[in-house]
Design a protein around this nucleic acid. Sequence first.
DNA 1: TTGATTATATCAATATATTGATATAATTAG
DNA 2: CTAATTATATCAATATATTGATATAATCAA
Lengths: 167, 167
Amino acid sequence: MSPPAIPPGEIPHHQQSYEAERFEVANRLFFRLYQCSNLLHKNGTRYMGDFGATTQQWAVLGALARPLVRIKGMSVKELIEFLLLSRQNLTAVLDRLEARSWVERIKDPEDGRSRLIRLTDDGNDAWLAMRGPIETFYGRALAPLTENEQVQLVHLLDRLKGGLNAV
Amino acid sequence: MSPPAIPPGEIPHHQQSYEAERFEVANRLFFRLYQCSNLLHKNGTRYMGDFGATTQQWAVLGALARPLVRIKGMSVKELIEFLLLSRQNLTAVLDRLEARSWVERIKDPEDGRSRLIRLTDDGNDAWLAMRGPIETFYGRALAPLTENEQVQLVHLLDRLKGGLNAV
DNA sequence: TTGATTATATCAATATATTGATATAATTAG
DNA sequence: CTAATTATATCAATATATTGATATAATCAA
C-alpha cells in the first residue's frame, strides 16, 4: 500500500494535532506558573502578616541574609540581576525597607559609584523571626510533593528560568 | 558497640543538616518560581508590545477564548477562582479590556445578580492575532526542556498549586 | 414577607511592577 | 585631561495587586 497523498501546502492532520497538543502543554504550563505565582504572593504575604512585610521584601531580605552577603552587602545592580526586577521598582522596595531600618545603603569601598545594600541588625532579627512562618509555609505548600519531586521541580524550574531569560 | 548518647532536648547533628537541607530545597524552589514569574510577566508583556496588552490581559483573554466559554461567557466569580486574583483587581483589568471593546459585560439570564464576561468579536480577533507571538514565546522559553520534561513540569506545578491553595 | 446570603461594584490606602526620560557622580578609556 | 561609560537615583505615567469598608440589587431560606 502506498501512503496517502498529502495536498501541497496543507499540513497533515496528525501534524496539526501534534502542534495543537504542543501548544496546549505549553499553555497549561505557563498558566500553572501564573496561578502558582499568584498564590505564592497572595498567601505568602498573608503569612508575613505579623511583620507587615510582603513577599517582595521577604525576597530581598532572603537575598541579603545569605552567609557571604550578610557582612559585605550587595550592590543594587547585583540585586536586580538576582531578583529579576526593574531598578526603579527595587529602589522603591529598598526605600521602604530602609525606612523600617531593616536595610542600609553604604558606600562601596571598592567603587565610589556603587552603594552596597546591607541587612541591619534589626533587619537580621526580623529575618530570623520570619523563618518560622516561612518554614511552616514551605511545609504546607510542598505537602503534595515528595522530596524527590521537589528536587526535580527545582531542576525543571531552573531550566525554565534559563529559557525565559533568553526569550 | 552502642550508639552514641544523644543529650535530651538536643537535635542530633545529622538531623539538623537534614532539616537545613530540606529548607534549602524549598527555598530554592520558591525562589526559582519567583524568578520565573518575574521573567514571565516582564518578557511576556514585551512580546505583547504590538497589542499594548499585558500578561494579565493575556490571561483573561485566554480564559475567555476557550471553546465552551467563548459563547456563554464567564462570571466574575468564576474568573476570580480561575485566575486566582482579587475581585477588585480583576474589575480594574476588565474595565481596561471593556474600554478597548475586547470584552463585554452581559446579564446572566439564569441569575439576575450575576453578569457574564464575554469576549467581543474584536477581542477574539485580538486574541487570534496574539497567538503568533505567544507561540513564539512558548517555543523559545521551553527550548531547554524536552517534551517529556514539559509534561512533567505541568504535573509538578499542578501539585504545587494544590499545596499553595491549601496553605 | 422578612431576613440572610450572594454577586457585583466602588472607594480608599498601600505596595508592587513596567518603561522612558533626566540627572549626578565616579570610573575608565583614549 | 577629556570623553565615554557605569551605577545610582529620581520623576512621571500606567498597570497590577492586596485588604478593608461600603453599597446595591437579586436570590434564597425561614
